[in-house]
């Protein structure tokens, strides 16, 4: 196993009103993108700010490169943070924004210039040195903010929903670029998002959070295929829940197979069919419950609304009542 770059041990931080994060144990390995995923207000930003040194903790340890950093101020930590917005200083040009941290570190002027030039090349932002932040688009501003962080060669890069203020198309593009640059430079990244699609696309591992606690940690595949609780199952991807006597079955629409004739274990009636490109989404009324199934477009031609069908579950999770 690779060495852990960052270790959180029993980290607890409670605000006066009782919100916060509780008993977080987590490791981030060198060269991985670890994503904190969860609905708004579950404590993702709180946890990220603990790493950056902006939130003091009530209990626990934070180790970066094996050193306890709990007592260190943000400017003393080997971390770099990018916020959702307002990262750049509007009274400084792009060059000055990028150079600020390196100047504080007393790097020679020529070296700063070279570093900025190659970083702007990497991010395809060359030629913007003399511009002010308000002359850049939102996506460009975030790129510069990321560039500024990368220039300081942090042990871990902290990104707090950096793309969520951008429109969908740019967001996708930035995602891909971040992933490419991360692989190229082999940096360690902690990424925060409430967008499960973004988390799936970007991460090596995902931490699903629920009300200040960790609900599950795993690779995107593990989280998608084996959600440990109904909470995780419902938060990620599309999921049908079928009630049983003592619990519920969770099954993804692509794992509901409509059978020919009466051979399936479950019987119901089709209520609607929607063509969504190369596949169709079929809603089935099964004993009063709505079950969604994805079928190939060609197969959907044999189906029609109000038709009685049978289906089977290829793969599913079973959750006990109350779990």
């Amino acid at each position: 196993m690779r060495s852990p770059k960052v270790q959180l041990k029993r980290v607890t931080k409670k605000y006066a009103n009782g919100d916060g994060v509780e008993n977080i144990n987590l490791e981030i390995y060198e060269g991985e993108i670890l994503t904190l995923l969860g609905p708004s207000g579950c404590g993702k930003t709180t946890l990220l700010r603990i790493l950056g040194g902006f939130n003091a903790i009530d209990d626990g340890e934070v180790l970066i490169n094996g050193n306890n950093v709990v007592q260190l101020a943000p400017e003393k930590r080997p971390t770099a943070m990018v916020f959702q917005s307002y990262n750049l200083w509007p009274h400084m040009t792009v060059f000055e924004n990028l150079a600020f941290g390196m100047k504080l570190r007393k790097m020679p002027r020529t070296q700063i210039k070279e570093a900025i030039k190659s970083m702007l090349d990497l991010l395809k932002m060359n030629g913007t040195e003399k511009k002010y932040p308000n002359q850049l688009s939102g996506g460009q501003q975030q790129r510069i903010a990321i560039a500024r962080s990368l220039l300081l060669k942090p042990s871990v890069l902290l990104l707090d929903e950096p793309f969520s203020a951008l429109d969908a198309k740019i967001r996708m593009q930035m995602r891909e670029e971040l992933k490419k640059i991360q692989a190229q430079l082999n940096i360690t990244v902690m990424f925060v998002t409430h967008d499960q699609e973004e988390a799936m696309a970007l991460s090596h591992r995902i931490v699903v959070m629920d009300k200040g606690k960790i609900a599950q940690v795993g690779t995107p595949t593990e989280i998608y295929d084996q959600p440990v609780s109904k909470y995780v199952a419902s938060f990620i991807g599309e999921m049908n829940f079928i009630k049983e006597a003592d619990g519920e079955l969770a099954v993804r629409p692509e794992n509901v197979r409509i059978c020919s004739g009466n051979s399936g274990n479950y019987k119901g009636t089709i209520t609607s069919i929607m063509i969504l490109g190369h596949f169709a989404s079929v809603h089935i009324n099964y004993e009063g419950q709505d079950v969604k199934a994805f079928v190939a477009r060609s197969a959907s031609f044999e189906l029609c609304e109000t038709m009685p069908v049978s289906f089977e579950l290829i793969k599913y999770q079973r959750y006990k009542k109350g779990a």
């Binding site: 950056g52 040194g53 902006f54 101020a73 943000p74 400017e75 971390t79 770099a80 943070m81 916020f83 917005s85 307002y86 990262n87 750049l88 200083w89 509007p90 600020f100 941290g101 504080l104 570190r105 903010a145 500024r148 962080s149 300081l152």
Partner: peptide
């Protein structure tokens, strides 16, 4: 002035006075 703008400066290595 947004809090992030001051925090970003701390983050890249500036002391509170800087």
């Amino acid at each position: 002035i947004h809090r992030q703008q001051e925090e970003a400066a701390r983050d890249v290595g500036a002391t509170p006075l800087q």
